[in-house]
Design a protein around this nucleic acid. Structure first.
Length: 471
DNA sequence: TGAAATGTTGGGGCG
DNA sequence: ACGCCCCAACATTTC
């Protein structure tokens, strides 16, 4: 009998259920080797920063335990993926290699090289695992990609054939003798020094892994989805799904989110209003990936060329005040401090802080994108790129340049009682609900809180002036 | 998935 | 009762 040995290369699909690559390997091979590779030269699988690496560590820990429970084992290796794969193939005589596709431009390039190099030696099979549909499957009539969300959404919904997610394999085809593996801790995903370990305080806010991802979804469907559309704009209440980091690492798939959401809708036909809106948000993620695939240059360059020569001010001191949450605008500082402490920021507040950075401070969106990429546990090149270009006005379906958020008005509107501000900027707790959105210089001093760093009206006009020049 | 300026309307106070 | 003014509330337009 011919022995087939399959390697399943886990990347952004850290789950056992609805995992096409894993299931195919388990069905087709006599033995299956689950593998994770950390490439320190590349900052791992997705150019991620410190907060995401901590999440990745926990997620791998969880996946590894889940595999052990199935009598399998996750092999950890470190280095250039092509070299690592080559080594493992010659050690094990692997005949098949399986993965679910990733879409970051440099990862596509890397995977293509691996495919063309190794396909001499073994069969390589790649699958759709992290998206509902491949980016090249959703195109306009003229075969060019969408740049506007609503028509994209309609086209996707029409095209999507909802199949049930793949089952978890029943037999993981373990080896009698496993190849060598590093310890997870040897991948150095956790911050090394200094003490105290900031990651522990941050991760106290989260549960990680495939089971946790499903718990989050089901809890959201039970309790949160009803008034999602109304509630999701208010940062003080937990109105958002909190699925983003789980989706980023593939602890749960977008197809699973669709499947279980629709199932919930079918079982609760009278309170189904939120489901469509959460699915719409999942498709925004899909749209971001499609944009990244079709316009890979947008990771660094504006989608619309006329923004290319835009003159940013890029003041480093001002950037630092924004990063540290010391702008003197309570809603902004609350958001930036929530981010620093939890690795997350409410979506409404992300828009407010981003508008402030790019429009009021005229600091390049790259600087904000870099900071988000380093500090968010859900940092994701596709979402991050689309979001920042959207705010800066240079991207797909973007906010017009004159759409400048006023942080004080937004704060009044979406955190009227100042609950969110009091949570993250406790030194302002004693101010009344009216003045907490915009303390006077005197109140700020009493609270030991910074004075507003800019004049909103003047900086708004400066931005309008500069933006209007590039029409 | 704005905000501010400008325009319009209508109720109520008042001479 | 009437006209006039004020201004809040809402609508429209401009940035």
């Amino acid at each position: 009998m011919v022995v087939t040995t399959g390697i399943v290369w886990f990347r952004q699909d850290l789950r056992l259920s609805d995992n096409a690559a894993l299931l195919h390997a388990c069905n087709e091979c006599n033995v299956v080797i689950p593998l994770f590779i950390d490439d320190p030269m590349d900052q791992s699988i997705s150019s991620i920063g410190g907060a995401s690496r901590v999440w990745l560590h926990r997620s791998l820990e969880s996946l590894s335990a889940d595999l052990v429970a199935k009598k399998s084992k996750l092999i950890f290796r470190e280095g250039n993926p092509l070299e690592v794969l080559n080594e493992l193939i010659s050690e094990t005589g692997a005949t098949n290699l399986y993965w679910n596709r990733c879409y970051e431009p440099k990862v596509i390039k890397r995977d293509e090289e691996i495919k063309s190099t190794l396909s001499q030696q073994l069969a390589i099979k790649s699958f759709t695992g992290n998206l509902l549909l491949e980016p090249w499957e959703v195109l306009k009539q003229d075969d060019t990609p969408y740049r506007v969300f609503t028509p994209y959404w309609k086209a996707l919904v029409q095209k999507l054939v909802l199949t049930a997610p793949y089952e978890t394999p029943t037999d993981f085809k373990p080896l009698a003798k496993w190849p060598n593996s590093l310890e997870l801790s040897q991948l150095n995903l956790l911050p090394q020094q200094p003490i105290p370990r900031w990651d522990e305080a941050m991760m106290a806010h989260w549960k990680v892994g495939e089971d946790a991802a499903h718990d989050v979804l089901h809890e959201f469907l039970e309790d949160g989805v009803q008034n999602y559309k109304e509630r999701r704009d208010f940062p003080a209440i937990g109105g958002t799904s909190l699925l983003s980091p789980h989706l980023h690492f593939g602890e749960i798939s977008p197809l699973q989110v669709f499947h279980y959401s629709n199932m919930h809708k079918a079982q609760n036909p009278h309170h189904d209003h939120g489901v469509g809106h959460i699915l719409r948000q999942v498709v925004w993620r899909e749209f971001a990936y499609a944009l990244l695939y079709h316009f890979p240059q947008t990771v660094t360059d504006p989608l619309f060329e006329k923004y290319k020569g835009f003159e940013w001010r890029n003041n480093d001191d001002e950037l630092k005040r924004w990063q540290q949450g010391n702008t003197g605008f309570p809603i902004i500082d609350a958001g930036m401090r929530e981010l620093w402490q939890t690795g997350y920021m409410h979506n409404r507040v992300r828009m407010i802080v981003a508008s402030f950075l790019t429009k009021n401070l005229l600091i390049h969106w790259h600087k904000g994108e870099e900071w988000f990429r380093d500090t968010l546990v859900d940092a994701d090149i596709a979402n991050n790129t689309m979001g920042w270009q959207w705010v800066a006005g240079s991207g797909a379906d973007a906010a017009p340049y004159y759409r400048i958020f006023n942080p004080v008005l937004q704060s009044n509107k979406f955190d009227g009682k100042g609950e969110y501000i009091r949570r993250w900027v406790p030194e302002l707790s004693k101010l009344d609900n009216k003045s907490i959105h915009q303390p006077t210089a005197e109140q700020a001093k009493e609270c030991n809180y910074p004075e507003a760093m800019v004049d909103l009206k003047a900086t708004r006009e400066r931005a309008l002036d500069r933006y209007s020049q590039i029409k």
